[in-house]
Structure formats: C-alpha cells, structure tokens
C-alpha cells in the first residue's frame, strides 16, 4: 500500500478545470517528482493533498485512510508537511523562531509541559542542528522576511522537518538556490528519503528532478500524462510535447540528448 494515494482528483474553479482526474501515489522512502508546464495544476494538487483546497471530486488517502475532508491541522498530526511556492515564512520572526514555532506546535501543550524541566539550551541546540542540516544556520538570527528567497524556502523545509513528517510536499523548493546549494539540497532529499520519508516535489529544475527522483509523474493540463523513472521520462515524446509544444514536424524525441549546447555555454 502506498503512503499517499491521490485518487481521481478533480478541481474546478468556475468553468476552468485546474486538476483533471489526477491519480498518483507516493511511497515511503522515495522521492517522487511532479513536473509539468506552468499552470498544469501542480500547486492545486498540493493544496488538495494538504487540505487547503477541497477537491470537486476524488479522494486523497494517507496511509490507507481517507483524509479528503480532514481539516488542515489534523493532516499535519498524521505526518504531513509542506512548503509553499509563494513563500509562507513567518516574516516577523527570526529564522530560528520560525522553527521553534513549528516545534512548539508539533509538541502541543502536553509536549510543552513534558519538556518544562528541559534546559532551553538543549532545545535550542536541536533547532540549530536542524537549521544546520538544511543549510540556513548562517541566517538563524535574521528576520525571515529579510533572508534571500532560497534561504526562506529551506527555512520552510526546516520548519516541516521539526514536525518529523512521514510525507513531505515540496513546492518548487529549489528556486532561488544557486548551483551548489541545489546540489546540497538534492543530497539532503536523498538523505531524508533514506530515512524513510516520502517526498513529493514539484520542481522546475530538471537537473535536480532527474538527479534525485525515484519516480517522476508528468502533469499536463491537469492530467497525469506520464509516469516513469528519470530516463524514461526524458525520452518520452509526450513529455517533450508537454514541455516544448507541438511543431509541424514533431521533433524526434531521441534528438534531445544530442543537441549541441553552444548557446547554453554562454550562460556560465
């Protein structure tokens, strides 16, 4: 049984269908990439899974249990954590306080009482270790609305991790990160997966997606059009079309890897 099952989910806004009968799963210990062109309905899918958006139709199951109508906060208690494409960091708190809040919420009042005698220093050390792990320790004392976008995204990840999630939903986590940071971030994702966390990631950086994902699902026009491992996805003509559009002479799929990179070299 898969940890997360999205089953035939439809979301309509007015007359526009944002998600069209999408079905996919995510497994514990695996990184699942959710890719597709802009406006394909990826973020809406995430909103449905995390409970911020009620689907018009369909079901979401976590660990075998139907959570389609479960309130947002209860999903977190069942091990779900997510980050946001448009940042939702607590801007007037410091980076460290952001994680502290997550920890406080996770532990709840009861947990809070249990840790009363515990030295604050040790809790602080836990938090700092978390910040270190995602790579934002340098910003620990800065206000969250003053750190670069990339760092704020990593901070959101740290916040999720404080709640020890079994399922992580990451919405474009790498935008705003530079090349080295992206590499480190990929390593972190692999580490988390190795620890047993299920990760679903909406992402545009294909190097990252191809590098870390076990499975990739391609969403286009609200519909899952392809599923497979990175190599299969890369050579799938439907994916080529979804990303590059049709052309009259429908370009051969295998031509992709052979293309010269002359223009690209200008970039670095």
């Amino acid at each position: 049984m898969s940890l997360l099952e999205v089953d035939d989910v439809v979301v309509q806004f007015g007359g526009v269908t944002a998600v069209d009968h999408a079905s996919f799963t995510a497994e514990a210990g695996q990184v699942t990439g959710l890719i597709g062109p802009n406006g394909a309905g990826k973020t809406t899918c995430f909103n449905v899974i995390s409970g911020l958006q009620r689907p018009t139709q369909g079901h979401v199951r976590l660990d075998g249990r139907d959570i389609t109508r479960m309130p947002v906060h209860r999903r977190s208690k069942r091990g779900m954590g997510r980050t946001f494409q448009r940042l939702e960091a607590f801007g007037s708190l410091t980076v460290r306080e952001n994680v502290q809040v997550a920890l406080d919420i996770h532990r709840g009042l009861a947990g809070r009482l249990r840790t009363v005698g515990r030295p604050a220093r040790r809790q602080r050390a836990d938090i700092d270790a978390l910040l270190e792990r995602v790579g934002v320790a340098a910003y620990a004392d800065d206000r969250a609305d003053s750190v670069p976008t990339g760092a704020a995204r990593l901070l959101e990840l740290a916040r999720c991790l404080a709640a020890e999630p079994t399922l992580l939903l990451l919405d474009e986590p790498s935008s705003g990160l530079d090349e080295t940071e992206t590499d480190d971030f990929g390593d972190l994702l692999r580490e988390l997966a190795a620890e047993g966390t299920a990760i679903v990631m909406v992402e545009h950086d294909m190097d990252l997606v191809m590098g870390v994902c076990d499975t990739i699902r391609v969403l286009d026009f609200g519909e899952v059009i392809a599923i497979g491992d990175p190599a299969a996805i890369r050579s799938d003509p439907r994916v080529q079309q979804a990303y590059l559009g049709y052309s009259d002479e429908t370009a051969p799929a295998d031509g992709v890897d052979e293309t010269p990179t002359t223009v690209l070299e200008v970039t670095r």
Partner: peptide, 16 residues
C-alpha cells in the same frame, strides 16, 4: 532554428 536546437537543454535540463 538556431535557438530551438539549444532550447530543450535549457528547459529539460542538460545531460544528467
């Protein structure tokens, strides 16, 4: 035409 050839790399990522 020239630009198209390089585009799939830019968008779909370079050879991984």
């Amino acid at each position: 035409d020239e630009v198209l050839e390089s585009m799939s790399d830019v968008i779909l990522g370079g050879a991984a």
